[in-house]
Amino acid sequence: MVLVDRIQIELGAQEPWPKDVKLFQPYEVEQILLPDNANCLAVQAFLKMCNLDFQVEPRANAEAMSPSGKVPFIKAGAFVISELEPIVQFINNKGITLTDKLDPEMKSDMRAYMSLVHNVMEVAELYICWCDKETYNEVTSVRYGSIYPWPLNHIQNRVKRASVIKKLKVLGWYQKSMSEVFEEVENCCQALTDRLEGKDFFFGDKPTELDALVFGHLFTILTTPLPNSHIANTVRNYPVLINLVQRIEKDYFKRETKH
């Protein structure tokens, strides 16, 4: 089955980018959570950087519809692909890429930074949403449960929370205190700042998927109102990153937000 799927994706790759590509994600205003929003925004930014047309299609059950159980996912013709990396791969197969000027060493660097963002920023976001009591009670549980009727909302909140905690335990994050989590975020921001210093984008004057991913996470962290705003304040200490976020927002989303 996996092989068949893979062959089909390869075959589909030869076709040009279809006109009616849709990006499915949860409702932004009342439903989406911080980590999901970051990933959805990252994919949106990447598609815009590639100059590909798409439409955002909000769905309450986007998470269940996704083949991997994670948002966002795109539907291009008969193909349904979820998450940033497989989408990047799918688009690369069509001959569209942001990394053609990069040498192999830089490419592996980029992958390392991307996994750093996934393993620190995304996990920290999960931690804040599901393990910080205040955030969970005031934001996460209300938003995540909003699409379900009573009493399914309470059941689903518990189920989801248990699965996130399980994941955090495996990653060794559940035992961490809030200040340790912020320290990790700080280290990650510092590493990204060091890499970016003096350049427009991480790898020269053109954006890559790493820029899209960093933009997705930092923009969401900066603009999402949470009871505990410490994480946003941590990010604000890195003006180089803020500049990057503002630049991408202006160039690709044609709007400006003050951070």
Partner: peptide, 24 residues
């Protein structure tokens, strides 16, 4: 009943995929 409708395979029609998720 809490019902969890899941998509059976990658080749499942998108109209079925749209129905995926929980219902009570």
């Amino acid at each position: 009943t809490i019902r969890d409708l899941g998509v059976l395979s990658r080749n499942t029609s998108f109209e079925v995929r749209e129905q995926a998720g929980l219902s009570l």
